[in-house]
Amino acid sequence: MIMAIRTSCAYVGFFVFLLCITSTKFYSYKYNVTWNQMANRKPDFRCIWSVVDNKTKCKPVCDHGYFGLYGMKTCHQWLNCTDIKSIKGFEKIQTDTIGYVKKVWISKWDGYEVVVKKIRQNLNGPTSHDEFHSGVQFLQDFSNHPDVLQIVGHCNETLVTELHAMADATNLEKHLRQNKEFDNVFVRFQLCIDFVRIMTTLHSGHGGKVFAHCDAGNVNIMLQQYLLTDDFRLVISDVDSLLGFDIRDGVSQKRMCPFKSDRNYFQPFNAPEQYFNHKLKTFPYDEKIDIWKIPNICDRLLYRNSIKRGVLPHLTALHKRCESSDPKGRPTALEVLKIYEYTYKILKKDSQIY
Rank of each mutant, 00 (worst) to 15 (best):
A10P: 05
Y11H: 06
G13F: 03
V16K: 08
F17G: 02
L18Q: 13
C20Q: 10
C20A: 08
C20Y: 03
I21F: 12
S23R: 12
K25F: 13
Y31C: 07
T34H: 03
Q37S: 08
K42T: 15
N54S: 06
C62M: 03
D63V: 01
H64W: 09
L69H: 07
K73E: 14
T82S: 12
K85I: 10
K88A: 15
K88I: 13
E91Y: 09
E91T: 13
Q94P: 11
D96E: 14
V101I: 14
V101Q: 14
V115F: 07
D130S: 10
V136W: 00
L139T: 06
S143L: 01
H154Y: 15
E157W: 00
A167P: 00
A167I: 02
T170R: 09
T170L: 00
H175K: 06
F182R: 01
N184F: 01
N184K: 04
D194A: 03
D194C: 06
M199S: 12
T201P: 01
T201M: 08
T201G: 02
G205V: 05
G207N: 14
H213E: 08
H213N: 09
D215K: 04
A216S: 15
G217K: 03
M222T: 15
M222Q: 11
L234P: 12
S237A: 15
V239A: 10
V239F: 06
G244R: 03
G244P: 12
I247S: 11
I247H: 09
D249E: 14
G250V: 12
K254L: 01
M256P: 01
P258C: 08
S261H: 12
D262H: 12
N264D: 12
N264M: 07
N264G: 03
F276V: 03
K281V: 15
T282Q: 06
F283Y: 04
D286V: 02
W292S: 00
I294V: 15
L301F: 06
N305G: 00
R309Y: 10
P313Y: 01
P313G: 02
T316M: 05
S325E: 15
S325Y: 12
D326F: 06
L334A: 11
Q352I: 06
